[in-house]
Amino acid sequence: MSNENERDEAAENLPDQLGRERLAAPVRRTGMFGARTSGDTSGFGGLQVRGSAPAQSQRPFTDPDDPRTADFDRVADDLEAALTAIGREAEVERVEVDRGEITFHVRREALLELVRVLRDDPALRYELCTGVVGVHYLEDAGRELHAVYHFRSITHNSVIRVETTCPDADPHIPSIVSAYPTNDWHEREAWDFFGIVFDGHPSLTRIQMPDDWHGHPQRKDYPLGGIPVEYRGATVPPPDERRSYT
């Protein structure tokens, strides 16, 4: 690929281009510099930032030009076959291939069955789960809390991502500790930081924060909690209260 093309590709990542693609998406946030009142004289007060529509990839998932995607079609076929065998093939909402990674978005009801298939099916054999990551998408109404799992197959040397969601109002996701004991602490951490209740976890208690802590500190609606720093009479506000770019 020539240098020229690379530049063009980088240009596509610029905000205005992305914005054009996303014009159909709902407005996620307005304004810049974090100003909520009319105090923003920058001219960016009217800016509208839109959220991206949920991405869905179509087959084929394997891009012949990208070696990272080499086994995606095989994995997707095998997973579909295995799920069809237990009648849960509809539980995978969509499949997303992005930046050489494949993500299976699955309904939470079927998570445990899906990971059992991932672990036990000889064609899949994802022996290693590298834990669960909680992500709080404040604007994703009805599915605010995402739990992201990465599975690694040592037999087939492959990595996939499984993502499931739950609403803030009903933060329940089935625990997969019975299938992957390694997720014990990872799920406790996600509960501690995000308030996701993992049903079926043997002892879902706080792990990082003190037992009597209120709230789940890494959620987006939880403040960073810094204090103003004083130096010789002047103060600097904590990072989350400073003027900033978005």
């Binding site: 500190p217 939880y222 403040p223 960073l224 909690g225 810094g226 204090i227 720093v229 904590p238 990072p239």
Partner: peptide, 9 residues
């Protein structure tokens, strides 16, 4: 002084 970690923890 808390250093760079001016946060809840």
């Amino acid at each position: 002084s808390g250093g760079m970690f001016n946060n809840y923890a």
